[in-house]
């Protein structure tokens, strides 16, 4: 599958930021399925020198943020120059703030993360559709494709929205600013669509 895009021949260093927040095995495997190895690390130099940085995250925002601070990663991440992809909570932490645990975020994306109301089931769990796709991250991806999400908090639409999703309201399924990308959904769990999105990121 990966040879189709000629990725396997490119040598690159991919790191997954390991700060003790949730399951990172899946993202590691997804990268491996694309023909690459990713290194799990919280080492500042190693992250700085990587070609691609993946910033995962599962769990609660304030405790994840304090883990980032403990390892000094809160200062490092916003200053990275290479393509960075935040996934799920990782994306939320890249925002200005999160209502969850009243958390100050990394401030990369200028948007405040808030909670879904009780008009809908929370968390949203399952496959929803992405629309208004606006980035090379979605090259080869059609409008209305399904992606997998699990979340209770969301980033409203903003200038940095590059994909939308609808659940109670239209909100940001993905964000981008300069070299920083964030997806609320889990590309590593979103079947072939997610695999292609991850591949697009690795090709940047």
């Amino acid at each position: 599958m990966f040879s189709r895009f000629g990725l396997k021949s490119i040598k690159m260093k991919i790191v997954i930021i390991n700060y003790g927040a949730g399951n990172i095995q899946s993202i590691k495997f997804a990268i491996k399925r694309l023909g690459f190895d990713a290194v799990l690390t919280n080492d500042v130099e190693e992250i700085k020198n990587a070609d691609k940085v993946i910033f995962p995250g599962v769990g609660e925002a304030s405790s994840a943020m304090s883990k980032l601070r403990d390892s000094g990663l809160d200062n490092l991440i916003p200053n990275l120059k290479q393509p960075v992809l935040g996934i799920c909570l990782g994306m939320q932490l890249m925002c200005h703030s999160s209502e969850e645990g009243n958390t100050k975020g990394l401030g990369i994306f200028d948007v405040d993360v808030i909670k879904f109301s009780s008009k809908v089931k929370v968390p949203q769990i399952g496959w929803n559709q992405i629309t208004n796709l606006k980035s090379t991250l979605f090259k080869g991806i059609e409008e209305n494709e399904h992606i997998y999400l699990v979340h209770s908090f969301y980033a409203p639409l903003c200038n940095e929205t590059i994909a939308e999703c609808s659940y109670e309201v239209d909100y940001s399924a993905a964000l981008q600013k300069d070299n920083f990308y964030g997806t609320q959904f889990h590309p590593e769990k979103s079947s072939d669509v997610g695999q292609r999105i991850l591949e697009n990121f690795l090709k940047m």
Binding site: Q25, K32, R33, E188
Partner: peptide, 11 residues
């Protein structure tokens, strides 16, 4: 679980 996660790209 490890072997499934290695191969399967759905939750």
């Amino acid at each position: 679980v490890f072997r499934v996660a290695e191969k399967v790209n759905i939750p």
